[in-house]
Design a protein around this nucleic acid. Structure first.
Lengths: 144, 144
DNA sequence: ATCTTAGATGCAAATAACTTGCAACTGAAG
DNA sequence: CTTCAGTTGCAAGTTATTTGCATCTAAGAT
């Protein structure tokens, strides 16, 4: 997995630096959806002195190359994940947990192009609500 | 329309100030999806000296009260619109034009809650691509 | 193994888009 | 026309991210 990602990166003519390896390893080693800040923290152990600006530069580069995925839930910072194929998420409004959806629930019928005179090339969809743990807490502690 | 929005605002116990009237008038008077900055500019004519911070405060307040709508396409600033019911958009990647969708193309089946152990309370969906004008320009001028 | 250099990094400063603290102001209930 | 909680203007602060630039380094050429 890690080697595969590094490979795809090199194929595109980019240098495989210590910093880049570290970032790829951190992301590929978790199923979580991490912010740039979180990636920066976790990377410290294998590559201290890796600058936050470099983390941003590389996460964005990897996302542009579609080697990793990037999601933005509108509130806080953007999040990055190793999975790069088209997919969507459930986002817990209480704890921030992110769950990957297995199937895309969006069905744009083919008439949309003529109805709206618009060619759709992509879409984003994110659902929000409460994961079970938080659902139970709701109504018990604060935040109604 | 304008009066209706003002009414809904007053009903909730908020004061109807000159600034708020101006903001509501600008938004209700257009079908466009405006940024706070744009609202601020257009409001100058009917209410100069209206501060940008006040525009932000009121647009957010109106959106929280679901009197207006707020969309965020992830790139630039958030946009506000007079329509407040649940709906979605097509967003042109070239010119930034926003088209309202008449129907919601998302179908979350009822099993989702048990499948993912998650209670969905809402969702956002935005599709992007190119409006006809820009589609024709693509390939002729810059940006392939 | 060493040279070369375009590409990458670190650091500090800059930016974009808001948000907040606070003193002064003002709708609207009485 | 008084009262005062709700609003506003202004300046400063915050958050998330980007950029300029001098220095450094991966990796192909020698």
């Amino acid at each position: 997995m890690v080697e595969h990602l590094k490979q795809r990166f090199r194929e595109r003519g980019y240098r495989l630096t210590r910093q880049r390896e570290a970032i790829i390893e951190v992301l590929a080693g978790t199923g979580e959806h991490l912010t740039a800040e979180e990636v920066h923290q976790r990377v410290q152990s294998i590559c201290p002195e890796l600058n936050l600006a470099t983390v941003y530069r590389n996460l964005n580069l990897l996302a542009e190359q579609k080697i990793i995925g990037k999601v933005d839930f509108g509130d806080g910072p953007a999040r990055f994940e190793a999975r790069s194929e088209h997919h969507h998420h459930l986002y817990c409004l209480r704890c921030g947990r992110v769950v990957d959806l297995l199937h895309c629930p969006v069905h744009l019928d083919e008439k949309i192009s003529e109805t709206y005179r618009f060619r759709v090339t992509g879409h984003q969809f994110e659902a929000y609500g409460y994961c079970m743990g938080c659902e139970l807490l709701n109504g018990k502690v604060g935040k109604p």
